[in-house]
Amino acid sequence: MSQDLLKSNLSSLERKLSLLLDKHKTIKEELAMLREENGELRSILKQKEEQVSSFQNQIKISKIVSEIDSDGKDASELKSKIDDYIKEIDKCILHLSK
Rank of each mutant, 00 (worst) to 15 (best):
Q56T: 03
F55N: 04
F55W: 05
K79S: 09
H24Y: 05
A75Y: 12
L96P: 03
Q47S: 05
S18W: 09
E67G: 15
M33P: 00
I64S: 11
R42V: 07
L6W: 05
M1G: 15
K81F: 14
Q3V: 14
S53A: 06
H24I: 10
R15W: 02
L78W: 06
K46A: 03
H95L: 08
R15V: 09
D4Y: 05
L6V: 09
E36Q: 05
S8F: 11
I68W: 12
I82V: 06
Q56M: 06
L78R: 00
Q58D: 05
E29N: 04
E37L: 04
T26G: 03
K98P: 01
S8I: 10
L78I: 05
R15L: 10
I68C: 09
E30M: 03
D90N: 01
S66P: 00
I64D: 14
S11V: 10
E77N: 06
I93V: 03
K91R: 04
K81T: 14
D83H: 13
K16P: 11
L13R: 03
N9H: 14
Q51R: 07
L78Q: 04
Q56C: 02
E40D: 08
K81V: 14
K16A: 12
I59K: 02
T26S: 07
L45E: 04
D4F: 04
I82G: 05
M1V: 11
L19V: 15
I82M: 04
Q56W: 03
E30V: 04
D71I: 09
I86S: 07
L96T: 05
E67M: 11
I64A: 12
A32P: 03
D69P: 13
K60R: 12
E67P: 07
I44R: 06
H95D: 13
D74P: 02
G72Y: 13
K73F: 15
D90Q: 02
L96M: 01
K63V: 00
S70G: 13
D84G: 10
I82S: 04
S12K: 12
R42I: 08
D84N: 08
K16Y: 12
L31F: 04
K28A: 06
K16S: 14
Q3T: 14
L10P: 01
K46S: 04
K63P: 00
K79W: 09
L10C: 07
L21Q: 13
N38F: 08
Q58I: 03
L17T: 12
M33S: 15
K16G: 11
L21A: 09
K79Q: 12
E49T: 06
K81W: 11
K48H: 10
D83E: 15
A32T: 06
L94A: 01
H95S: 10
I44C: 03
R42A: 10
D74W: 06
L10V: 08
K81N: 14
L34T: 03
S18F: 10
I68R: 01
S97E: 02
K73V: 15
S70C: 08
L10E: 06
L13A: 10
L6M: 12
L10Q: 08
Q3M: 14
S76Y: 14
K98Q: 02
L78M: 06
Q58P: 02
H95Y: 11
K79G: 09
K87T: 08
G39D: 13
L17Q: 10
R35F: 02
E37R: 06
L31K: 01
V65I: 15
A32K: 09
E49W: 07
K23C: 08
D4V: 09
